[in-house]
Simulated assay, not measured.
Amino acid sequence: MTNHEYLVTGMTCGHCEHAVRDEVSRIPGVTAIEVSASTGYLTVTADTLDDDAVLSAVDEAGYQATRL
């Protein structure tokens, strides 16, 4: 398993965290997600992961992400 780190802009509350977590959890192969509105960090754990899929999922939730 590998951790993939992202910075998500625009999150301000628990609802924001839930929206991002919900969309990212739909990506095949994701085994764990940690997201914090206070820091803006998103950590996705997976064996293999397509960065574009994560960026699209975060966009679908209404936010923007960049890979760290």
Rank of each mutant, 00 (worst) to 15 (best):
M1Q: 15
M1Y: 15
M1D: 15
M1L: 12
T2W: 14
T2C: 14
T2D: 15
N3T: 15
H4D: 09
H4P: 14
H4A: 12
H4Q: 13
Y6M: 05
Y6R: 10
Y6N: 06
Y6F: 12
Y6D: 06
V8D: 01
V8Y: 02
V8Q: 00
T9F: 15
T9M: 12
G10K: 08
T12M: 08
C13K: 06
G14R: 10
G14I: 09
G14D: 09
H15K: 13
H15N: 15
H15P: 09
C16G: 03
E17R: 09
H18K: 14
H18P: 14
A19S: 07
A19I: 06
V20S: 01
V20Y: 06
R21G: 13
D22M: 08
D22I: 11
E23Q: 05
E23S: 11
V24A: 04
V24Q: 07
V24K: 01
V24C: 08
V24D: 01
I27Y: 01
I27R: 07
P28L: 04
G29Q: 06
G29M: 05
G29W: 04
V30F: 07
V30L: 10
A32C: 10
A32R: 07
A32K: 13
I33T: 06
I33W: 02
E34G: 12
E34L: 06
E34H: 08
E34A: 10
V35H: 01
V35K: 01
S36Y: 03
S36H: 09
S36G: 09
A37Y: 14
A37G: 04
A37L: 12
S38Y: 02
T39F: 08
G40Y: 07
G40S: 01
V44W: 03
V44P: 10
V44H: 03
V44Y: 00
T45W: 01
A46C: 06
A46E: 01
A46H: 03
D47A: 14
D47F: 13
T48W: 10
T48E: 08
T48P: 11
L49K: 04
L49C: 04
D50F: 14
D50T: 07
D50Y: 06
D50G: 10
D50H: 04
D51C: 10
D52I: 07
D52C: 13
D52Q: 15
D52S: 14
A53L: 10
A53G: 11
A53F: 08
A53Q: 07
V54A: 00
V54Q: 03
V54K: 00
L55M: 05
S56C: 08
A57T: 01
A57W: 00
A57K: 02
V58Y: 03
D59T: 08
D59M: 11
E60R: 09
E60A: 12
E60H: 08
A61P: 02
A61L: 04
A61G: 00
G62P: 09
Y63E: 02
Q64S: 13
Q64I: 05
A65L: 13
A65R: 05
A65W: 00
A65C: 09
T66L: 12
R67S: 13
R67Q: 11
L68S: 14
L68G: 10
L68P: 14
